[in-house]
Design a protein around this nucleic acid. Structure first.
Lengths: 355, 355
DNA sequence: CTGTTAGCGCGTTCAA
DNA sequence: TTGAACGCGCTAACAG
């Protein structure tokens, strides 16, 4: 049996509340008893029972984290960021994996709430159309912050996807590429933003977008990038650069290009998104756009903890500025001054575009 | 305010315990009240408060997971495995990252226990010499299972590291390599096992081990593999194959080899451990040994849940058989029948060698 | 300075 | 078939 407050009290012939007063650092306790209590606590190895405490205080020191897929390094990195700031103030994280199933998400969130988590970080599997998500949540009065996938009028921390598309595409233009294709993921808000940025960059540089230069792929699948690229290579004229919506897609694309004897970056430039590990050790070191995944987690946790402590109102969406990472796969003109500085940039929270 | 049992009872003019009886599916309740209660529960959207319930039942439906580093895909994959079986029976996971600090580990474990987790999966940061870890734990009576790093006489799930070393080295021998070096990690039990397997394989094939063919590196660091390989290349005669204790080390080694104009696998074979993502897309597709990380998590969770439900005694260590994955980096004799089958093998729990 | 008392929301006797 | 009463371990009033 674990030692309880009662045991400590009994051993000292004190009342429970006196012992408690000592532990809660109440000022009106004599030095003598204070010492006695502390000694006994150490001797008996007493640790307060958090379950009992939580029942009273309505605080568990636990944050719920809901993600659609633990296989994706994006989410594990975000979790790392959350943990970094949460653990610093002795909060714990409860994890749940929804497997991209909105119903399961609702269920898990409900369970987490009944487990009294102090707040939630959610990468929602819901359709951006649904406002079910945050409606239920705000009804329950549980603070929450969304990550990765934004919903209107809900606290959100994520990268600016339109900027990602814009930065990547602009970089390709700068490198002298002219027929820039895009492997997109139109099923997620994240993917849609990147398409917008892509189109915007083309427009800005007076390049006409071609429908047949946009092919669908899946975020997490090298195979989809491979297949999509095979399709792309049948276009005429062939694209001379590819902006892939994710690094896995780009890796599949790289495979397809090399297989067809297309030289990277000479015949075709390639850039992805995500800054996956080992990207620089691939057959051709892969240019990419860093989303600052850990930073997203950190900022989300900070925002959430602000909400939990009631210090701040639900803030406006926080959009992190992505960073271009140039490697060989998109570097056609090595003479062009390579933007080294960009790689060193730290993430900064930018002013949100929509309130 | 969230609805409580009391609210449901009041709304129906029933007593709390009657409502509770319905929800706990007690048999001696009339169909009529049963219906009324269920309807009201749905109407008021009642969810039992897990904190209160846990205080009474001494069960939280939560497992603690303690890992030294959330950056390593090994651990996130193990966590995925744990979650897979835990979530299936509606258990949640509480995460803690100890940052390889034994003291922090002890502290976190204590906190998790005071949060009343039903059991713990621990990848310990302690020195294998310490038996502090499981001594404290068994004193508290909290079920636990160790993963990744074994301690004598404690429930453990992991891969058989000696087999890893043996399999990898034997494979290199089979490919006709004769001067096989090893980039080792002697600071961890895991690394030590791999060294043993390496030496055993050499011995078994009548190859004399050379001290100067073993260079230290760090598990998670490409840079360390790179540096170590540079050292290795100064030996005379040069090694003609390298068994790296991890994939990151192997990736660093690959970089160093290519930089020095050493052809892989012709001049030098290379194999790692870990089956990292994108290993097949590297400059030279990397041979490796799969540790079945997700499987480790699954088995650990199963073993732990058995302990939690009190069905089984602390089992003997469970050692998973690793699987050789052959890719280009170690394939010098393409004519040699490539062990395709090995790639398809599923993990199996093997009989432990020591009790 | 210290002790008494009354909950937090739920589970579990035992009466009615 | 239903309800009253107690306790899980702790916090926080309020007395003394």
């Amino acid at each position: 049996m674990r030692t309880r407050l009662k045991d400590v009290a009994k051993a000292l012939n004190l009342s429970i509340s006196t012992v408690n007063a000592v532990l809660r650092n109440r000022s009106d306790i004599s030095k003598a008893t204070r010492r006695r209590v502390f000694d006994k606590v150490k001797e008996l190895n007493y640790r307060p029972n958090w379950v009992a405490r939580s029942l009273v205080t309505q605080r568990t020191q636990v944050l719920g984290v809901v993600v659609p897929d633990l296989s994706r390094s994006f989410f594990t990195e975000v979790i790392k960021g959350i943990d970094l700031v949460a653990s610093a103030i002795r909060y714990h994280l409860v994890l749940t994996n929804t497997g991209e199933d909105p119903r399961r998400e609702d269920d898990e969130v409900a369970t987490l709430i009944s487990k009294q988590v102090d707040g939630l970080v959610i990468a929602s599997a819901h359709d951006p159309g649904d406002n079910v998500v945050w409606r239920n949540l705000s009804k329950m009065g549980v603070p929450f912050v969304l990550v990765d996938r934004a919903f209107p009028n809900a606290p959100f921390v994520g990268v600016d996807d339109e900027r990602i598309g814009f930065i990547a595409t602009t970089h390709l233009v700068d490198q002298g590429y002219e027929r820039i294709a895009h492997l997109r993921v139109p099923s997620l808000s994240t993917g849609i933003g990147r398409v917008r940025g892509y189109l915007k960059a083309l427009r800005q540089h007076g390049i006409r977008a071609r429908q047949d230069y946009m092919v669908d792929a899946e975020f997490h699948s090298e195979a989809s990038g491979y297949e999509a690229t095979k399709i792309l290579l049948q276009r005429s004229p062939r694209p001379d650069a590819i902006f892939a919506a994710s690094d896995p897609i780009a890796i599949g694309a790289m495979q397809a290009l090399l297989e067809e004897g297309v030289r990277i970056p000479l015949d075709c430039g390639l850039i992805g998104v995500g800054q996956v590990r080992y990207g620089e050790y691939l057959k051709v070191p892969l240019s990419t756009v860093d989303q600052h995944r850990v930073e997203i987690g950190k900022l989300a946790a900070k925002a959430l903890l602000d909400l939990v402590s009631g210090q701040k109102k639900p803030a406006k969406p926080i959009l992190i500025e992505p960073t271009l990472i140039v490697r060989a796969s998109s570097l056609r003109h090595p003479r062009t001054p390579r933007p080294r500085g960009a790689q060193e940039n730290r993430a900064r929270a930018a002013i949100p575009r929509n309130g």
